[in-house]
C-alpha cells in the first residue's frame, strides 16, 4: 500500500507540475497570503496569536534547545551579512509559516497520505492518519513542520491553563506531525456559514489569527482564486502568479517587489512576500 501510494503521489505530482493545471485539479478556493516585509516590524504578535488560536504547546527551555519548539508561525531575524561594526540597516524580519505550497514537497513522501492537498489549496495534515515517519518535515524546504516528540499536554497546560484550549481543534499528542493550517477551523466556520446562507464565501469572511492580530496589517489573507480579494489584488499588483517559478525577468518591471521564498524550487508557495525596503541614501 505505502509504496504504491508514494509512487502514485509522485507521478501525479510530476504530471501536475508539468501541466498547465499545476497542482490540484479541482480547487474550490486557493487560500493565500501577501506579507509586506517593509511594514512587518517583527513584534511577535502574530506568533503569540497563533499559540492562542491553535493550541500550540509550550515546550520549555530544554526542548526548545533541541529544536522542538512548536511555533507554527515564527519570526526569523537575520542580520545583513556585512563586515560592519554595527548592523546599520536594522534587522531583517520575516514571519515564516507553512507556505501551503501548490506543489508541496511534503505531500508525495508521506507513506500514509496523512498530508494531502485539499480543494481549498491547503496542505492538510490528518493527525489521526499520521504515523510519525517525519519524511514530510525532512522534505520541507521551509522547515515549518513540527513533530510532537513528546506528549506536551500535561506539561504545557497545567490546570486551569487547559481551559483556554480552543475546542475547534484538537491537541496533538506524541508521534504526530503538525504545522500551520491557515486557521482551517476558521475557514470551516466561514464556509458553513456561507453555505447556510446559500451564498459564496466573500473576501473577509475568514481572517487568520496572525493577520487579525498584526498591528501594522502587514499580513493579508484571502482566496487567491477570487479576483477581487485583497490578496489577489496584491498578487496581481506585484506580479506574482500561481504556478511555477516566476522569474524576475518575466515581470513587466524587474523591480516590482513581490516574490515567493524558495520559488525557484517550483513548489508553488501560497505566500507572497514583498521585499523589505531600506533607504540607501540615508
Amino acid at each position: 500500500m505505502s509504496l504504491s501510494n508514494i509512487l502514485d503521489n509522485l507521478s501525479r505530482f510530476r504530471q501536475d507540475a508539468e501541466s498547465e493545471r499545476y497542482g490540484h485539479h479541482d480547487y474550490e478556493h486557493r487560500f493565500g497570503m501577501a506579507i509586506d516585509l517593509d511594514i512587518c516590524i517583527g513584534c511577535n504578535a502574530c506568533s503569540t496569536a497563533c499559540y492562542a488560536e491553535n493550541n500550540l504547546p509550550v515546550v520549555g527551555k530544554d526542548y526548545f534547545e533541541q529544536g522542538q519548539a512548536m511555533h507554527w508561525m515564527r519570526i526569523e531575524r537575520y542580520w545583513d551579512d556585512e563586515e560592519l561594526e554595527h548592523p546599520e540597516r536594522g534587522a531583517s524580519f520575516i514571519p515564516m509559516m507553512c507556505q501551503q505550497c501548490g506543489a508541496a514537497t511534503c505531500e508525495p513522501v508521506c507513506p500514509v497520505a496523512a498530508t494531502y492537498h485539499t480543494p481549498d489549496g491547503l496542505n492538510a495534515q490528518v493527525y489521526n492518519r499520521c504515523i510519525g515517519s517525519r519524511y514530510c518535515s525532512n522534505n520541507c524546504p521551509f522547515r515549518v513542520r513540527y513533530f510532537n516528540f513528546w506528549s506536551f499536554y500535561e506539561s504545557s497546560w497545567p490546570e486551569p491553563l487547559n481551559q483556554q484550549l480552543n475546542p475547534d481543534l484538537s491537541v496533538r499528542d506524541k508521534g504526530v506531525m503538525e504545522k500551520c493550517t491557515f486557521c482551517i477551523q476558521r475557514i470551516r466556520v466561514a464556509k458553513d456559514s456561507a453555505a447556510r446562507e446559500e451564498r459564496n464565501m466573500i473576501d473577509g469572511d475568514v481572517i487568520t489569527a496572525c493577520a487579525q492580530a498584526c498591528p501594522t496589517n502587514a499580513i493579508v489573507f484571502g482566496d487567491t482564486m477570487d479576483p477581487t480579494s485583497q490578496v489577489s489584488l496584491a498578487w496581481k499588483k506585484h506580479e506574482v502568479k500561481r504556478g511555477p517559478y516566476t522569474h524576475k525577468e518575466a515581470k513587466s518591471d524587474e523591480e516590482i517587489r513581490g516574490y515567493r521564498v524558495f520559488d525557484e524550487l517550483n513548489v508553488d508557495p501560497s505566500v507572497m512576500y514583498l521585499e523589505r525596503v531600506r533607504d540607501s541614501e540615508v
Partner: peptide, 12 residues
Amino acid sequence: FVRTVSADQLRR
C-alpha cells in the same frame, strides 16, 4: 529569504 530593495526602487 528576506530580500531588501532600496527606497529609490520602491519609489520607481
